[in-house]
Design a protein around this nucleic acid. Structure first.
Lengths: 130, 130
DNA sequence: CGAAAATTAATAATTATTACTCTTTTCAGT
DNA sequence: ACTGAAAAGAGTAATAATTATTAATTTTCG
């Protein structure tokens, strides 16, 4: 059986995502890896993000200004999106969020696999800049 | 001072959104109103959705398959998105969700204005179809 | 090594959304 | 009701993120 990440570029994309907490878009990943991988193609970044997503190694955490933003930290946590600068920040949970499921009426015949909680507002930098 | 002129098309878009719980995309709104307003333009739908959004009469609740989905019910509630058919359903809260805010670490210097909670999974129709 | 399968670069195509230009509608003040 | 300026719209072109295609390269593994 073939291993999952046998391509250097896929590995590089994954490791870059693991090493940052900026929740970048495909475009940023492409530009960041380009110097080290001069023949990298943007299509490769998109395709690998999809492959990694299917393998639950990466997830899309938000769409900001029409751009999908990715995160390789799969432990359950939420995000804050700045409406002004588009920055995406982590928001870690104080306690188990399964609590959350008790707060909403869930149809019993639905198969709820995951959830995504996003907070919107203005980040500290943008607040002080105004 | 003149703020906004009354427009019957904007009104129609708003009323259509109020009358449905399917959380439609711009495209669906356009096709639904087209028979009654034969000269309606898709650009008009997009522009008015943005105007209504700025006036807090409408909000985007999710992006499904690259399409923004809208809701005119502004009372706080969450949504379920079916990963298979893309359906967006309402999930009303059993209790006050301000409780929710206590579960995450919120940086004090951030101005959190709103949040969006989306559940993902498979709806009952898609489950029984498999 | 060598063949089969997976991956990629480069490019073309797709598609949701926005911008633009000119026309039409709306409405406050007459 | 009439008018003129502001707002809104139609129709079309443009934008930009993402996806599909295809031929070439790389990787895997017997």
């Amino acid at each position: 059986m073939r291993t999952q990440n046998y391509s250097r570029k896929r590995q590089a994309i994954y490791e870059l995502l693991m090493s940052t907490d900026t929740h970048p878009a495909a475009d940023w990943i492409y530009n960041t890896l380009k110097p080290k991988y001069p023949d990298l193609s943007l299509g490769t970044v998109y395709r690998n993000l999809k492959v990694l997503e299917e393998n639950h190694m990466v997830r899309s955490v938000a769409v900001v200004n029409g751009c999908e933003r990715y995160d390789a930290r799969m432990s359950q946590h939420s995000h804050f999106v700045c409406r002004r600068c588009g920055k995406v920040e982590d928001m870690f949970h104080k306690e188990d969020m399964s609590e959350l499921l008790r707060c909403v009426t869930i149809a019993k015949d639905h198969d709820v696999e995951s959830y995504n909680l996003i907070f919107y507002g203005h980040c500290s930098e943008c607040l002080s800049a105004e």
